Simulated assay, not measured.
Amino acid sequence: MDLRIPEGTTAVVLGPSGTGKSVLIKHVIGLLAPDRGEVLVHDRSLSRMSSSEVLGLRRDIGVMFQDGALFSSMTVFDNVAFPLRQHTDLPDSTIREVAAEHLQAVGLWNARDRMPNELSGGMKKRAGLARALALDPGILLCDEPDSGLDPVRTALLGELLRERHEELGGTVVVVTHNIALAKLVAEHVSLLWQGRIVSSGPAEEAFNSDDPFTRQFLAGQTAGPLGMD
């Protein structure tokens, strides 16, 4: 596959389940290495970086996982503060201030002392987003952020992602198969199918494409190249 993500945009990678969207994210952060070709982040090849350089790069990449991936033994507040405590030498007073700002931004300040098992699915997603943004990363990767959410919560999460991007900047990459979420947040859209990029470009072009697969997938139609196999 060949994919370029425009820097500074909210880019959505769409595709059917099982087509490789989450695998793509693992390559971007260096958890998987490509069989051939290169993965470049900020014009630097991951395969040519040392282990310490890859770790440094990861500190500039926030990841919002499908299920939040919160530490079950930590409160919501400590989950958000964790990256700051792990990767910075900031005094605890500053860490608490930064964590509080991110929790307030996602509407979870009043839930700061709760444990993850006391949160709803939507609250876990928001806590995961706050933690992913704690280090003010230049890149935010969102792996199926709408997974398990009803349409209303999905729309609210989409608005939150858009608001945080407008406030913090950087590049946001959302991988999903949810067309409604894509229409809400996307500035750039790429369609991944069977391990290759079918189309990639500005969101307006994607949603008005004449490509058979693109048109079928974005419209949710049964007739077209995408079947049950």
Rank of each mutant, 00 (worst) to 15 (best):
A155F: 15
S22N: 06
L103G: 11
A111M: 12
N208C: 06
K21Y: 12
D43I: 01
V39D: 02
R44F: 05
D78S: 09
L156T: 12
V12A: 01
D2S: 14
L141A: 02
S72Q: 15
M49R: 08
G138K: 12
P212R: 10
L168S: 03
P151A: 04
L160T: 09
L160K: 11
M74S: 01
D146K: 05
A11P: 05
E101D: 15
G20L: 01
V80R: 11
F71Q: 11
A100Q: 08
F65S: 00
F217P: 11
E187T: 12
L46V: 01
G62I: 02
R44W: 04
N79Y: 08
A130W: 11
D2I: 01
G68I: 02
S93V: 13
V98M: 12
L103N: 09
G56P: 03
A186I: 13
V106E: 02
K125Q: 15
Q66E: 11
R215E: 11
E53G: 05
D89W: 07
A33Q: 15
S51R: 13
D92C: 02
R48V: 00
G220R: 11
L160M: 14
E38M: 00
A206C: 05
K124Q: 13
S47N: 02
L160C: 12
S73N: 14
G15T: 03
D146F: 04
H42I: 00
G158C: 09
A111R: 15
D78P: 05
L90F: 14
D35N: 15
S22C: 07
P116C: 05
S147C: 15
I179N: 09
E53P: 04
S22M: 08
V80N: 13
A69P: 07
Q221R: 14
L14Y: 09
V41Y: 05
L226P: 03
S190A: 15
E118K: 11
V152N: 11
D43G: 04
W109I: 00
L133N: 06
S52E: 08
G15Q: 04
K26I: 00
E101K: 14
L119E: 04
M64C: 11
L181Y: 13
I197W: 05
A127I: 06
A99P: 14
R162I: 01
H165M: 08
D113G: 07
C142V: 04
L46R: 01
E159P: 00
I5N: 09
S45H: 03
V54R: 14
M115T: 08
I25M: 12
E187F: 10
S22H: 09
E166H: 07
L40I: 06
A81P: 11
P202Q: 15
S120P: 08
D229P: 02
V23M: 14
A130P: 13
G18I: 07
M228D: 06
L24K: 03
P91N: 10
E38T: 08
L226Y: 13
L40T: 08
A134W: 03
S52F: 04
G30H: 06
L40D: 06
V198T: 07
K183L: 07
F217E: 07
L184C: 10
